[in-house]
């Protein structure tokens, strides 16, 4: 034993343990996979159950069809709405508003977050105002935006930007600031420049927090556009929902709400997949 220990000066008992570690990691991964499957089945089962209750309550006449229309009616409304000539143009309006609002909210949040984090003078100048601007509930801006930017896309995009900017800004700022002091010390000892410290340490270190911000930014951009369309619009899904509701076409409203939710969720999932790729190390 003593001899073996003396000879292990260059090696390490731990490196020899690599294969064990590898097997252990494989087992852990398999367990995680099984757990994910179980969770999915649970969620799917619960969904089916709720759908069944919905159908049952409607069939028994326990819920009025003007409050919650039965599943079959919503399905036929889907075909009716989706085949209508007005449908796609309105969908495209909303989608382009969301895309523009999300992109602008995200970009401005990142730009301001990085500037405030990296430049003391920028922080001193604008940070108090950015925080103060957060105070009013942003929905109150919707009517003003219609007055300023009109009934078309611009007022909805503005609403989406205002809603989605702040979480992206704050998460960028927080992510860049939450760095281990020893890591900064290491970079300083290596005579790294500000830009190098940003590129090699601060930015990758901030990515997990920033990606959480991107997800918030996305859902809020959708919310902003729909709110904008409710308040004053001549086209878009929000506008259609408003119109259908007015005509007591509740199943039509349901179809639009469901489609909008599915779209939001699908993109959300895409962002999460991207997140897993970008911050691959957090899952290890």
């Amino acid at each position: 034993m003593t001899i073996a220990y003396d000879q292990s000066i260059a090696g390490d008992a731990e490196t020899g343990r690599a294969s064990t570690i590898e097997r252990h990691i494989a087992q852990e991964k398999a367990r995680a996979r099984r757990k994910r499957m179980t969770n999915r089945l649970l969620a799917a089962g619960f969904g089916m159950f709720v759908l069944f209750l919905w159908w049952l309550f409607s069939a028994l006449g326990l819920i009025h069809r003007l409050i919650i229309p039965p599943p079959g009616e919503v399905l036929s409304a889907f075909f009716r709405v989706a085949s209508a000539s007005y449908f796609w143009p309105n969908v495209m309006v909303t989608l382009s508003e969301i895309a523009a609002g999300f992109a602008l909210g995200l970009a401005s949040g990142v730009v301001f977050g990085v500037s405030v984090a990296m430049f003391e003078s920028v922080r001193a100048t604008i940070y108090p105002y950015l925080v103060a601007l957060q105070a009013p509930p942003k929905i109150v801006l919707a009517p003003i935006f219609v007055t300023w930017f009109g009934f078309d896309e611009a007022s909805k995009i503005a609403m989406a930007v205002v809603m989605s900017f702040f979480p992206m800004f704050l998460n960028t700022l927080t992510g860049l600031a939450s760095v281990e002091p020893n890591a900064v010390k290491l970079m300083r000892s290596l005579t790294a420049s500000r830009w190098q410290t940003f590129r090699y340490l601060l930015l990758p270190n901030a990515l997990p927090t920033m990606m959480a911000g991107v997800k918030l930014c996305w859902t809020l951009a959708v919310l902003g556009v729909v709110v904008g369309e409710f308040v004053g619009a001549s086209a878009g899904i929000g506008y259609l929902i408003h119109a259908f509701n007015f005509q007591l076409d509740i199943s039509g409203v349901f179809v639009l709400i469901l489609l909008l939710s599915i779209f939001t969720l699908v993109v959300y999932q895409l962002i999460e997949n991207l997140e897993k790729k970008i911050i691959f190390w957090s899952g290890m």
């Binding site: 020893n182 290491l186 005579t191 990758p204 290890m284």
Partner: peptide, 24 residues
């Protein structure tokens, strides 16, 4: 400079971590 904690960057592989000083 070397500290009590390794201060490795989790987004860089072992080799990339060792290459950090050279890169900087």
């Amino acid at each position: 400079f070397m500290l009590q904690t390794a201060v490795l960057f989790p987004w860089r592989s072992v080799m990339e971590n060792i290459r950090l000083p050279g890169a900087i």
